[in-house]
Amino acid sequence: MSILILAEHNNDEVKASTLNTISAASKLGKQIEVLVIGNNIEKISKEIANYQYVTKVLSLDDQNYENAIAEKIDPAILSIAENYSHIFAPATTFGKNVMPRVAVKLDVAQISDVINIESEDTFIRPIYAGNALATVKSNDTKKVITIRPTSFDVIPKEGGSGVVEAINFESSENHTEFVDREESNSDRPELSTARIVVSGGRGLQSADNFKLISDIADKLNAAIGASRAAVDAGYVSNDYQVGQTGKVVVPDLYIAVGISGAIQHLAGMKESKIIVAINKDEEAPIFNVADYGLSADLFEALPQLSSELDKLNSIEK
């Protein structure tokens, strides 16, 4: 049997998390079909059909599905679930909202937030906020799984030759109504989900100097983070704090500037895919976890980084 993937999108664009999830599913070497539920999704359904590994796109296109209301989505999945051995969705607030409903109605245990796939029935997932990894084997006939997007590469958006098949499903659910959505300031991604995070520590020396960080963050479309020392010193508010008592982030790229790397801070970012450390002190513990370390005065390095990024952008344009 093949794998069904629930696509995450906003009717207009496919979210990258869908590409990561397809990539995770591809590890099992089975046929992959993608279910797209939304309103006016012809364009994105076609787009997904071209993705690598995708053999078929099932498109449920109805104004009833304009906003992703979980109670409306799970019955649609269940209506076709019998054809699949595995049902995958990204472990984002979208996927987390829907998939447990699917699992319970199939009477199977869901495996959440999978970061590695060992075999058809065995998966690795973080527990205790990533302080331990559990290897779990599912004895259920169907596997309902959410995938941690940052743990899998994105697949190429071409190379597939899937077909789009429209499906119909009438949802009777009317207990929940969508009111509105306030997407956070799109110039600045959310710290907890950003692909790139630029964080500053006490080395910045003042709240004013944090604009050196925001300048770099602007150029990389990154979120801004901070160490506890920077928060304690009053440079930024504690919404920005990354670490044990702040936010845990797992971006593709984490740039730590003027942060020594107290273990409480490391606890909040050590799962990042690539870590860059810029610090004057060559002995700073942050360098022990950094993929790329630069021992330099940040007041010289950041303006240089800014102009290097400009150069890069102008080449691309």
Partner: peptide, 8 residues
């Protein structure tokens, strides 16, 4: 993930 959503 995208921000805030209100539902009734």
């Amino acid at each position: 993930d995208e921000g805030l959503e209100r539902i009734k």
